[in-house]
Design a protein around this nucleic acid. Sequence first.
DNA 1: CCGGAATATTCCTTGACAGGAATATTCCGG
DNA 2: CCGGAATATTCCTGTCAAGGAATATTCCGG
Lengths: 110, 110
Amino acid sequence: MPTRDVFSVIADPTRRQILDLLCQREMGVGELVETLGLAQPNVSKHLRTLGEADLVHVRIDGPRRHYRLRPDRLRELEEWLAPYRRMWADRLDALERHLDQLDDHDHEED
Amino acid sequence: MPTRDVFSVIADPTRRQILDLLCQREMGVGELVETLGLAQPNVSKHLRTLGEADLVHVRIDGPRRHYRLRPDRLRELEEWLAPYRRMWADRLDALERHLDQLDDHDHEED
DNA sequence: CCGGAATATTCCTTGACAGGAATATTCCGG
DNA sequence: CCGGAATATTCCTGTCAAGGAATATTCCGG
């Protein structure tokens, strides 16, 4: 089981970028360093963090390590999102906006 | 437009809890304080943060403020998640796990 | 206009984390 | 066994955010 919370792990933009890259294909650290334009130690640290959240898996190939996306834990996000998704499914958001507008008209706020 | 990133805002467990509560119905600050068991100033600060991300809307009712969920910005999360959702849609995760198992068998790692 | 209730803001301290630089580790070829 | 390439780990520092305590604001009733 992961030792790190998925929500806080994906809160970092760099980490999301890494995940987006791995979404296409598995990549080595060097590739990621080159693509991201970051220093290698930092990339490695982010990869470690992602691993601690079980979001990536390492494939060892000689001295190199290839990182592969492991999308499973993202279901946690999906599940958390589920109740909210229903709220905009039936165009409830339009109603929301309408109500907000009424409120805003009564008194300037927010 | 919001002045705060949705991802980092929902990274906080307390904030997610607040959103979960507001998912049912709109609530006043006092209600939230009582339900969450936190100090009032902290609840207010979290509500401010949520507001800065456009995740809640305030309805002013005399000296009280009622907070209502505004699920619209959560679509950002939904959209980011879309490419990954496809990856487990076709039971690709099972294949994933199988590959992981093979790798783990070759060399103990991760 | 005053007092009190509801809520917001500020100040402070502490802990977590990102990034940079330097160093350690692991692996292969020779 | 040695050197170099690929990657990981550690140390350091600055920044940011959460929580607690104290204080300020806003609103209503009288």
